[in-house]
Amino acid sequence: MKTVDLNTSTVRELNQALHDQAKQCDEREWLVTHPAGTHALACGLDQNISVDIEGHAGYYCAGMNQKATVTVHGNAGQGLAENMMSGVVRVTGDASQSAGATGHGGLLVVEGNASARCGISMKGIDIVVKGSVGHMSAFMGQAGRLVVCGDAGDALGDSLYEVRIYVKGEVASLGADCIEKEMREEHIAELSELLQKAAIDEDPKTFRRYGSARQLYHFKVDNASAY
């Protein structure tokens, strides 16, 4: 294991060393100490490595991640795992707003709460939150799954496309075109697998499913006369 102490190294040096692993991988396990809430830690990784960040991270941690497993042992600031393509990002504490925004793939696990706009514009990423999520979560979500073991804030799934949302607790309100849907066997199986991958012990049968009513995102033929 290689340790990078951010008391003595810069974030740029850390990220460069991690990027170099994409060309030639000589170290699979990385430990980052004294992150002190600095921004853009472990961004743009493109290798099957694991990075453990010992403490709170600032904005845009683990953005654009591919293949790597990044674990923040603490809280993460806004834009955690933004535009993730693959791999696993886990935060043991809370994540600030826009966690997993625009993610195309991979798994984001938040063991605490995620605040507003969690999974905004998700495009294939899976997000599992052990706690609650804030308002406008999964806004315009196109593909992927969002699992919330706690409660969801206002306007969940507003203007949703094809993201499937599973919530165990209360939903403050549903956004435009987001509706509750039947929890069928295939959904219980899908949710079981997601919870298992996230290593979170919850009974999938206690969740409700939400999805798009599909009234907003396609052209309505009634409007054809406008052209």
């Binding site: 600031g77 507003a116 804030g134």
Partner: peptide
């Protein structure tokens, strides 16, 4: 505004740290 500004406070490692709700 950012956690970075809190890191020099004594005992911050064990403090309750959270984002205020809207």
């Amino acid at each position: 505004s950012e956690y970075q500004a809190l890191v020099t406070l004594p005992g911050i490692e064990d403090a309750k740290v959270w984002e205020p709700e809207p």
